[in-house]
Amino acid sequence: MSEGPNVLKMLIVDDSNIIRRRIERSQQIDRLEVVGAAANGVEAVELFRRTGADVVTMDLTMPEMDGIECVTELVRIRPDVLILVISALADKATAVEAIERGANGFLCKPFTDRQLNGALEELLAGR
């Protein structure tokens, strides 16, 4: 994929290697280019600063820095970042808090490829 003004850089944040690869392989949005994957919040913030990602998929339960803190930090660094929380829906209160901190949307694990791409399309459309 070539660099262009319309291509958005995407960062994947999830502590599971399987999920990270799954998201990277399944996403088929032409405008998105995966520029990095992080296994925890600290790594995510570091990668986010370095790559200047526009779009982030975010797990909530992670070691080091959890998703809620990470969302807060990313939005602080760049208020127009697009964040899709991808997490198991164990506790709606936590999910709502992530949205309150600035995440744009939520996708429930487990998800199908179609659901993932649909959610990413919706995320970019709402921009």
Binding site: A95, G105, F106, C108, E122, L123, G126
Partner: peptide
């Protein structure tokens, strides 16, 4: 907040 992307977490 993307209205369509938060329907699943409606408490």
């Amino acid at each position: 907040t993307n209205e369509n992307l938060v329907k699943s977490i409606n408490p």
